[in-house]
Write a protein that binds this DNA or RNA. Structure first.
Lengths: 336, 336
DNA sequence: GTGAAAGCGCTAACAG
DNA sequence: CTGTTAGCGCTTTCAC
């Protein structure tokens, strides 16, 4: 409970000097700095972040808003962001907007705007122009992860390209009957990720001169179960069975592999499967996939934020494309 | 950016009245309250939480410390806690201590103690007496989830009982050769969850008069892969194969089911499998399990915290046992 | 290099 | 029921 006054007294200096010595801002002679440090240590002094924030106007705290926490991708991004923030001396306060509209408004009105955070990271959330505007008006930088946000630095993978790459891998192996398991309108997320992945799939097929067969598309909800059910529908008709499946997420791809097994189909001999993510479980299942790196995405978002917060020399780019890589494991092979 | 002054001016009252009207503390006539509200609305006024915190000494913010975020159990607890906190008007700031010792000290020294949070929820983290003491000295309530914490309200399932229940289910089905996949010293977590689950397993066997066969124990790291490998070791020797496996987590249990399949063993006819958690994927795999409810655990932790923060009539109990239930699906059956 | 003093924006007695 | 007035604990000019 020791305050700055006590430290000042013990060190025999003024509170102003204590502040300067401890924060490193402003010049203090080495001798006094050492004395102040010793005093602070002895009294176990820690600045009150509130008082400090009130005086400086900055909180050293950033808000992270996400639609889910309980999913591999999102918790990984948050984990990456948290580590990076901590290393910069920032706290991370978490706003999970899964609750729907009311919760979302409430978070914006009552939380983010309360001068609690210096900046916000929006993960896979399509903020409205109004939401963005209000934050920027308050001088709070935003960075988006997962999709473009008008007027805001943004980090995202090119979903269309990801899907195209996955499909091309299958095409290159010689597949022609390539099915797609992905999102439909009801499961649509912000930024139309499912739709974009479908677009890339279609584009790759068309570029290869292969007509798109609508019966080879099955909607699913990005979960393992959903993928399993979709795959069962796909594999159900032996006359029209695809030789390869591109699933828009690894979880669905794993569901597809399990469905194939249950139907006595061998992966990859009878059917090749590729997903997107490089989920924790993918290696185990030998799943070929397009890897994206969520923890790294969180880290990069923080980096950009720090640049916005402490403008340096670095050039400000609005959109940073994120890396993704094809990882070939044992779930894809030429059709037999 | 409107401040309390402007609201006061617009409403034609003093700032004190604005504060009272908006916070609901202290009496204000309905008429003026309405006027103040209208003014606040018009100016889009939001209190500065820093100024407010500085004046009141409370931040309306709670710190949550966890060892991992990227795992089903932990992210679920956090999700539950976050929702509950939000509904009480509290923010949640997240401290992920996965980084090891240095990070942990740094979080305690520089973050939690900085008067940033009113309280802390420690999830599956065995705080030292010193850590607990310093927090309590600062008058910051703590509640622990996942294990007992000396002198602190705590929420946890009885790990020994959970394991005993799982094992008894297998025994009741008639199994006698029951293997256990669980933790060993190197994978030990705080609170010795793995050890306790093993203790319950042993206790159940002994109570049934069945000698514990050390070759029927296989250590693993609580992941699906780990479970798969452990199960392979277990099933490898056809002479000594168990008829049932109790895995200390659902992920390991799922790995066990997959291993059985790969070896041509049928679950549950050739081998029964039971886990602990009721993980997202468990229903899909037809896994019998002992369900615990992490989101609910987060919610309950917040409830207890609110009682500590706003002492009411409710009696203060130090340890709250958490519910768990046997869920029988299709992975367990009598041995044939 | 260091100190004095004026706030940062709000809340909480204390009067009235 | 409402206004006045001190602070909350720190940072930051502005002097010295």
């Amino acid at each position: 409970m020791a305050g700055i006054n006590e430290v000042a007294e013990l060190a025999g200096v003024s509170t102003a000097t204590v502040s300067r010595a401890l924060s490193g801002k402003g010049h203090v002679s080495e001798a006094t700095r050492d004395r102040v440090r010793a005093a602070a240590l002895e009294l176990e002094y820690v600045v009150s972040s509130n008082a400090s924030s009130l005086a400086t106007g900055r909180t050293k705290n950033v808000g992270v808003v996400i639609p889910f926490l309980n999913r591999w991708f999102f918790s990984s991004v948050v984990e990456g962001a948290e580590k990076a923030l901590l290393s910069h001396g920032y706290d991370l306060t978490l706003y999970n907007l899964s609750g729907g509209g009311g919760e979302r408004r409430s978070v914006f009105e009552h939380f983010l705007l309360r001068k609690r955070v210096d900046a916000v990271i929006a993960i896979s959330l399509e903020l409205t122009a109004d939401e963005v505007g209000r934050l920027l008006d308050l001088n709070k930088p935003i960075v988006g992860v997962g999709g473009p946000l008008a007027g805001v630095p943004t980090l995202s993978i090119d979903e269309v390209e990801v899907a195209r790459l996955a499909t091309e891998h299958l095409l290159a192996l010689g597949h022609r009957r390539i099915a797609h398991i992905g999102g439909s309108a009801p499961t649509e997320m912000d930024f139309h990720v499912p739709t974009n992945r479908r677009v890339g799939y279609v584009a790759a097929l068309e570029a290869a001169g292969i007509p798109v067969d609508p019966t080879l598309f099955q909607p699913a909800d990005f979960t393992l179960q959903g993928g399993y059910r979709a795959a069962n529908r796909l594999f159900g008709n032996p006359r029209n069975r695809p030789t390869a499946v591109f699933a828009a997420s690894d979880e669905m791809a794993i569901g597809t592999i399990l469905a194939a097994r249950d139907l006595g189909l061998h992966v990859p001999d009878d059917v090749s499967v590729i997903g997107v993510d490089d989920h924790d479980l993918s290696e185990f299942f030998g799943l070929s996939t397009i890897a994206q790196y969520p923890a790294e995405q969180g880290r990069r978002a923080v980096e950009i934020l720090m640049d916005e917060l402490h403008p340096g020399t670095r050039e400000r780019t609005l959109h940073t494309p994120l890396e993704f890589h094809l990882i070939v494991r044992s779930s894809t092979a030429p059709p037999r």
